[in-house]
């Protein structure tokens, strides 16, 4: 009876630990862009849980498919670029299947309740 009991106990512990090891949600990239003025766009990247994303790759792609600008987020996870003349979208690419996309028609001047400094100061 002893060895059997020992095996069962190990199996129970294994089942508990195995069950706990299921994946939780990975941290999703998020991106927010505003118009600083009529010709300048500023974007800030990060992760849903609040982490910063310095060094993250940002691409600005015209609707024609051509990449008009690409750069990396600075220490404050911010990137500022010239507003393209045609339709475009901003792609914060983390790797395959991990990205945040903002289309140009979402990008406007900061709203009244957007008080964060990065959206307002020209630095």
């Amino acid at each position: 009876m002893k060895p059997l009991r020992y095996t069962l106990r190990c199996a129970l512990a294994g089942a508990l630990l195995g069950g706990i090891a299921v994946p939780a949600f990975a941290h999703e990239p998020v991106l927010k862009c505003v118009l600083l003025d009529a010709d300048t766009v500023r974007c800030r990247g990060g992760y849903a849980e609040g982490e910063a994303a310095p060094g993250g790759t940002i691409e600005v792609i015209a609707y024609s498919g051509q990449t008009v600008f690409s750069g990396k987020l600075d220490k404050g996870s911010i990137l500022t670029f010239q507003r393209p003349a045609t339709g475009y979208y901003v792609l914060f690419n983390e790797g395959p299947g991990s990205q945040a996309i903002v289309e140009h028609d979402e990008i406007g001047p900061p709203r009244a309740n957007d008080r964060a400094r990065w959206m307002r100061s020209r630095r």
């Binding site: 498919g65 979208y89 690419n93 299947g97 991990s98 990205q99 289309e103």
Partner: peptide, 16 residues
């Protein structure tokens, strides 16, 4: 919104 390129198709579903 409709993906404008295959590599801009959004977030990938995950889970095993």
């Amino acid at each position: 919104n409709k993906p404008r390129a295959l590599r801009a198709s959004g977030m990938a579903f995950g889970g095993n």
